[in-house]
């Protein structure tokens, strides 16, 4: 049974105090998206053996969602971080690479100027 430290309140909570929320950093595709985009958003999950990013809610606690970087085989936790980020933070990437030198991010983070938050893209 896991323990994770909630980055929102600093409490180290055990699994029974948390609610799982599946894969992190999904990009929402809404109306106007192609069938392929929407299918991948709704159904395609990485389910990797090794480094993974997950959503957890501190349900029996501060009630906030947060993200965890974790090894699905060894259950090693590389770090937890705020949910309000479209990609794992540089600190988390560094923490993973310190333990798993061969691991590389599989996303291409757009440069800062062109980033739109999901919120903005939905609300014009």
């Amino acid at each position: 049974m896991l323990t994770l430290t909630c980055p929102c309140c600093g409490i180290s909570a055990e699994e029974t105090e948390l609610a799982p929320g599946g894969e992190a950093h999904l990009k929402r595709f809404g109306p106007g998206s192609s069938d392929d985009e929407f299918e991948s958003y709704l159904f395609a999950r990485k389910n990797p053996k090794g480094v993974h990013f997950e959503r957890w809610r501190h349900a029996y606690g501060c009630g906030k969602w947060f993200l965890a970087a974790r090894d699905t085989v060894t259950l090693e936790v590389f770090g937890t971080y705020k949910a309000q980020t479209p990609y794992p933070t540089p600190e988390i990437v560094a923490a993973i690479q310190a333990k798993r030198p061969d691991w590389k991010p599989d996303w291409h983070q757009p440069s800062v100027n062109t980033t739109t938050t999901p919120a903005e893209s939905l609300t014009e």
Partner: peptide, 10 residues
């Protein structure tokens, strides 16, 4: 101040 669960409830 600790929020947790008591047996099966918050």
């Amino acid at each position: 101040m600790r929020r947790t669960r008591a047996a099966q409830v918050a």
